[in-house]
Nucleic acid binder design. Structure first.
Lengths: 259, 259
DNA sequence: AGTGAGCATTAACCTGTGATAGGTTGACGG
DNA sequence: CCGTCAACCTATCACAGGTTAATGCTCACT
């Protein structure tokens, strides 16, 4: 039941990308997979591996890290519902390390399943392609983030992005998100030093934008955070054509603080 | 004749990505296109446009710029043979401004042509997909570049990347590249100030790594530049499976300094 | 209760880069 | 021939953020 719950994140994610029908979703029922659990900072995929399966993230966060940089720079972050490595469907050689941020649950799905899925359903094929394109858009935005913002706004922007991405799959609806990652992880994602990450978070706290205690972050002033970051969710789009919807809290569910 | 020459860049580019046959290349012969010329800093596509055609770059350089950042941050650079906006095939809304760096010649090709091409030839379809994936890998690398290198190595890395990308389409074989872009353009791509870009270039000159006079850059010590930048061309790959070939100067052609 | 590991916090100091502002060169037009 | 303009070069000063290192907190395990 826990597992079925987690799998529905993928459905949510795909639905956010294209007009998926019930029939299409039924195709996911046959998905073969084996479930794997990972602990904090444990490697899911290693640089140089040849992938034969995709990593579908069910719970927690994963990060891609640059193997060459000494401080383990993080180049992207995956949230539940993401396929961490969709590109391996077409080019299986792994470039970078895929590492869990905090405990994570991953479903390993044979490449073959997705290839057949795409062959069987044009809409699903399109959704997978849009997933790739969205990853690309996110990556471009990380480039912008590093290139044009200072530490404070950079961290703020990253938090905005993660929040909206979680909301797309039904998490963090009340702007509370589980944060198993450390301040050093955040620093590695924003390319600042861990010490300065700390200074920065304190500044965000002092502005009453958020609380970060223990393993959850509560964003107490969403609009303030968005304004500070200059965050525009359009790039995360979400249903081709439409512009991104503002992440309004929909009727609360029971699954709120679990990422 | 000039034009036919330029079109062959696309063939070179696609060939570098997948095992293209002569029959596949023949399909390119029907490519409908209209040619457009642009001057320095002129916009090719504007943020918010809806694209119905792809921009195939024949000569010169194009850049994607972030419309929100005041200094016109450059988030990626296109070289001849690149399709500047392959993602518009699937999501036509333009995000960012596509701007010419120096004079550029572009072939505008209807989306329809590429969709039919992909439907007709699986290999071509694959090559187009790999083009998207390579763009993505390059973008990830820009994130790494901004996040983990200082100004000097950042500029060095960018120059290495551009050089190798030019070489895959038969340009810059002798490590001389046309550089219609200004130091400010370079600065915008590396997210440093124009003044500091100048300091940096002088440093590179002082180390005898390159000459930059007028509108051409001559890299005089390629290995030194690669070492300084920590450049590893693997991410540009270039024929799935293989690792990237070292960019050896092949028998010189007549087209050397023209980008 | 005691120990140790990992993480958060604080402080003192240092450096790369930005900002500003001025000077030089070269291409072009009248 | 001179004025204009854009690009390039140089110098100086201020500050965001890096580095290092010491201290404290919290939790897990014995």
């Amino acid at each position: 039941m826990q597992a079925g719950f987690a799998f529905s994140r993928l459905a949510d994610r795909l639905t956010s990308l294209a007009e998926i029908t019930a029939d299409d979703l039924d195709l996911l029922a046959d998905m073969p997979s084996s479930i794997a659990h990972f602990g904090a900072h444990q490697a899911v995929l290693r640089h140089g591996d040849e992938a034969t399966r995709c990593c579908l993230l069910l719970q927690g966060y994963l990060s891609w890290q640059n193997p060459e940089s000494p401080d383990g720079q993080i180049t992207s972050i995956c949230v539940p519902g993401d396929i961490a490595d969709p590109h391996t469907l077409y080019r299986p050689r792994i470039d970078g390390n895929l590492v869990a941020l905090g405990p994570a649950i991953v479903a390993l799905v044979p490449h073959r399943f997705f290839h057949e899925l795409a062959a069987r359903s044009p809409v699903m094929s399109r959704a997978l392609l849009l997933m790739l394109l969205t990853d690309h858009a996110i990556q471009r935005n990380w480039t912008i983030n590093l290139g044009s913002r200072d530490a404070l706004t950079r961290v703020a922007h990253l938090l905005c992005e993660i929040t909206v991405r979680l909301q797309t799959v039904g998490l963090a609806r009340d702007f509370r998100l589980s944060s198993p990652f450390t301040q050093s992880d955040l620093a590695a994602a924003c390319s600042i030093s861990p010490v300065h990450a700390n200074r920065t978070i304190q500044e965000l706290r002092r502005c009453n934008l958020l609380q970060w205690r223990g393993k959850t972050i509560a964003i107490t002033d969403w609009r303030g955070l968005v304004r500070l970051a200059g965050f525009n969710p359009a790039y995360l789009s979400i249903r081709s054509g439409e512009d991104a919807r503002p992440p309004l809290p929909r009727p609360a569910a029971a699954d709120v603080a679990v990422a």
